[in-house]
Every structure is written in C-alpha cells, then in structure tokens.
Design a protein around this nucleic acid. Structure first.
Lengths: 214, 214
DNA sequence: ACTCTTGGATAGTCTCGCTATCCCAAGGAA
DNA sequence: TTCCTTGGGATAGCGAGACTATCCAAGAGT
C-alpha cells in the first residue's frame, strides 16, 4: 500500500507519518521507484504501536525510538532485550544524592527488596532506571510527610508481583521473541493506564461503599 | 517567611513561585505592606504538593489548579469531594463512539463492572472520566490485537480493589476531611508512580527468575 | 540618604509534536 | 508528446505549555 492508504487505514495524517519516518519510528517503505514507496501490514501494525506509545502512553518521540529499536534488535537474549526495552521507558531526572529524603527513600527501597527477596533487582539497583524512579517517587511522598517505608510498600509489591506474573504468563502465549518483547512493552505502557483506571475506579467504588454518596 | 525563603526551603525558584501565584496554584501570601508578603508553613506544604502533582504526576498546571480547588472546597461531602478531586485528574480526549474497538471496549468494561458487582461505578459510567479513560485504554489494546476482555481484567481489578482498600484505610488515619482528600489525591497521583515502578521491578525480577540473565 | 531587595507585571524562551509549503519526478489522459 | 495530477522528500513554521528573564516602583537595611 502507498502512504495515502497507510494514512487512511491508520487514521494518522500523511504529514505525521512522514514525520515518524523522518524520526526513525517507522522503517521506510520498499521503494518502487523514485516517487513511490510500498508499505505492508507490518508497517500498519508498527504505526499503531507508535501511536499507542505516544498518545496513550505519553512517551516522548525520542524515547519511543529507543524502545522500538530494542524491540527490533534480535541479537540479544530475552531478559536483556526485554529489560532494555523496559529500561528505555521512564528516564526520570537523576535524584539528588544529597537530599536526605532521597537517601531515606533509597534505604527503604533497599530494605523492601531485601524483605521480598528480590535479589536480582537489588543487585541492579544502582543501574536500573526503574529502581531510580521508585526512589524518586518514594522520596517525594516522604517529603510531603507520608511515612512510606518498606513495611507499607511490601503488600503492594506483592500484589504487583502477582500482576507481573500474570502478564508474563500472557506474554508466553506468543511465539516469537519479537512479539513477546512487543507484548511486554505494550503491557508496560498501555496496561498501566488500564491498571491506573481500575485503581481509581476501585477507589471510587470503595469510597461510595464506605461513605455512601452523601 | 518571605518569597526568597519560601523559594530556598522548597527548592523552587522565585520566578516559578511567582508563576504559580499568578496561575492561582498557590494562595497569595499575607501582605505586610506594599513590597512584602508573608508566607507560612501551609504555603510551603502546598507548594510541595503542587510540585509533586506537576513534576512527578505530570499533571498540567491548569488541571492541578482544578484539583487543588476541590481540596480546598469544604462545602461538599466526603465522597463527592473526593470524587471531584479524582475526576479532575485525567481528562483524556473523548473516545470516538463510532469506532468499533471503542464500542467493544465499552461493552467489556461494562461486563467487567457487572461481574465484579461494582454497581456504583456502573451507574456513573457515562459520566466518570476514569471510566472513559479505561475504555480508551482497553480500546487501544484491542486495536493492537490484544484480546482484553472482562475475564482477563477481573483479576487485575480485584487486585487493584485490594490496593484501593488499603489506601482508604490509610486515608482514614487522618483526621480532617481536607487532609483526607489531600491524601487521596497524593495517593492517586504520587502513589501511581510507586505502583508503576513496583510493577516494572516485579516484571524484571520475575523475568530474571524465569529466564535467567542469559 | 543611598543602595539592595521584594513583589508584581510583562514579554520572551525553549521544547515538543506536529503541520503546511515547496519542489521535483513519475505516471496517466488527451 | 504534452500537460496535469499525485506521491514523496526536505524545510520551515506553528501552537501549547511551562517556565524564565527583565523591568519597575516601593520599602527595608545600614
């Protein structure tokens, strides 16, 4: 199919598709001649994923490119490739190591990982952006006066572990490693809005049950 | 304290504080005379909350103002006030009612709520922005080919319900309604990064356990 | 009295995600 | 062939959002 058809089937304007091509989010089509390129179903699929990452997930374009490059890179093993794709997602600013709240938060997070027996995460803690964003978030809560410590977080971590397990089960229903990594990314980025919405819905529901509508 | 001190203690530049004052995110200080205003601990606390909403939660300034106005409005009942604050948070674009994926997603979400017995949420479904964002997220997943239906979501919803219950328990440890609403907002906005990070950490950990580091 | 700081107002800056325009080469119809 | 439309590449511009830098007048500090 040509650019115009790709645009029509995806609902994304040709100008925007050209922009994504320029930015390397979408591989170029097969050039038929100097003025025509041919796109296939794979392009359409990729374009939908890109839109989902950017629009629903709110990932910046530059970061989406990195994430996608890890999905495409089939030279790595499963854990590394999956990790690389997930590590490319958040990118919060470096926490200030001198801030006492950050220090306290880092200690609590480490204690949490120890309690849970998550040794792998603990070993990678100085490297992982995910770990860093957890520290930043906990430090912020503490700064606001909420006493988030390992004991308070452990049950949530247990619940999220159950969630993650389910998702990996789901991921394993796909055959190719590329699809699996894509599923993992889609889970991380698109499933989080679902979880967030479920969380808030549950909060509304439970609040109405406890206190009525008043 | 004066503006400069507020800036120093919060780590936010005076220019930015002035900007927040202008935008109504921060109530003006008590004017001592034509050139001096006095700020107190409450201002500092509010400023920290504002920063948390905007920086950690990624809430746009205009929306943060709405949310804060609900925290301050003590003319409403608990559920309404809490709901109003939470409803002001997401604001995703209206889903396209003609899109078959959206229709299917809405049907699945309704079926989910029915299964769970979340009648309140079901009744409010046409109004609640939270409900809408759930539909949008599920529709996006379906569009990408992931078969998200009520059965698949139910266990997650159960888990998130447990999370929400815990948070309301925590909220109840605070005395004043204003503090409780603030806790709820902080939970919704700041706790979500914590959950997200825990989720991804769990994914890393479980992935390493299942597949090794390779 | 003289400088320094404060708070308020205004306009500018920077980033990001597009989007509109221009241009040229094919390809099709006359 | 000639003209006219269309697709694709390159470039510049736009609009929103979150600050940020500058200016100014009125007190405060010494």
């Amino acid at each position: 199919m040509r650019l115009a058809e790709l645009s029509e089937r995806s609902g994304v304007s040709t100008a925007t598709i050209k922009y994504y091509l320029r930015e390397g989010l979408l591989p170029p089509g097969r050039r038929v001649n100097a003025t025509t390129a041919d796109y296939d179903e794979e392009h359409l699929r990729r374009l939908r994923l890109v839109r989902a990452l950017i629009q629903v997930g709110g990932i910046p374009v530059a970061r989406a490119r990195e994430v996608l490059s890890h999905i495409d890179d089939d030279s790595l093993g499963r854990t590394i490739r999956l990790g690389a794709a997930l590590w490319a997602l958040p990118q919060e600013p470096e926490p200030d190591e001198d801030d006492p709240d950050v220090v306290a938060a880092a200690a609590e997070v480490d204690r949490l990982l120890e309690t849970l027996g998550w040794e792998t995460s603990r070993e990678l803690s100085s490297l992982s952006p995910v770990h860093r964003s957890l520290v930043v978030a906990v430090a912020t809560l503490r700064r606001l006066g909420y006493p988030w410590d390992a004991e308070l977080m452990a049950p949530y971590a247990g619940l999220m572990h159950q969630v993650a397990s389910r998702q990996l089960d789901f991921m394993e229903t796909y055959d190719s490693l590329k699809e699996q990594v894509e599923v993992a990314v889609a889970s991380a980025v698109l499933f989080e809005p679902v979880l967030r919405a479920l969380h808030r819905l549950a909060q509304e529901e439970e609040s109405a049950r406890r206190y009525g509508i008043e």
